[in-house]
Design a protein around this nucleic acid. Structure first.
Lengths: 117, 117
DNA sequence: ACCATAGATCGATGAATGTCAATGTATGTG
DNA sequence: CACATACATTGACATTCATCGATCTATGGT
């Protein structure tokens, strides 16, 4: 129910003052974008993303990810969830395993967020 | 003395185990990229960046930035410093004022970091 | 039904982060 | 020189975050 770039400016009902236009990103839009960059703002998450993206078949399960990063399983699950919530990764449960894959066009959307600043 | 994308893999002297290659981002490379994404991972910094980028003349001083974001001056200075350290912004002191401007090609370099994952 | 495995979720904890008030440092002006 | 202005730096505080151990929830195999 999200993922729609609203692109609204001056939310119209923010606080009390500053009624006129601001030539910047709207606070809400900035917060939305920050969620995505926050998901990329951790070295281990970048490595996870890299492994998943370049994995054969384009997907990897948690058990494949915990060893190369030398992280505990709960930590890896936590990082993956953050990237799923940010709209970067897709999670598919098959049997006992959970396969994570890069969402189609997600990285292009990130570059769009950068270019449209 | 930084800003050089090293692109080295398997730093060769990390810990003790895992001598073989890992098909992921090297830890050091991931850490370097995370610094840039961390600089973008805050709503107020994104708004600051947006204001600076779209400012007439491509530059803005701190006094122009503290009001539209409703933040204190030390906070704005702090955010700007983070983006300067990340290689996104350039700082030039002219008289009493400090003018911040987007570094040439910085955003393109960011998109490069995303695409080369 | 029992057990093993894969993964998510739940606390806890130490580190990093965003924010501000107070102070410090230049630079310009009288 | 004295004073004001623009900004940086410091210290403090509250919040967020990354990580782990322990536990819970499937799912599969015997």
């Amino acid at each position: 129910m999200n993922a729609s770039r609203t692109l609204e400016l001056t939310p119209a009902g923010t606080a009390c003052c500053e009624p006129s236009a601001s030539p910047a990103l709207a606070a809400e839009d900035a917060a939305d974008r920050a969620v995505v960059f926050k998901a990329l703002a951790d070295p281990n998450r970048l490595r996870l993303l890299s492994i998943v993206k370049n994995a054969p078949g384009g997907e990897a399960c948690v058990c494949d990810l915990t060893e190369p990063l030398n992280l505990g399983q709960p930590t890896v699950s936590h990082h993956l969830k953050i990237m799923v919530d940010a709209g970067l990764l897709h999670r598919e449960k098959r049997g006992t395993w959970a396969y994570y894959s890069l969402i189609e066009g997600a990285l292009d959307r990130v570059t769009g967020l950068v270019e449209s600043l």
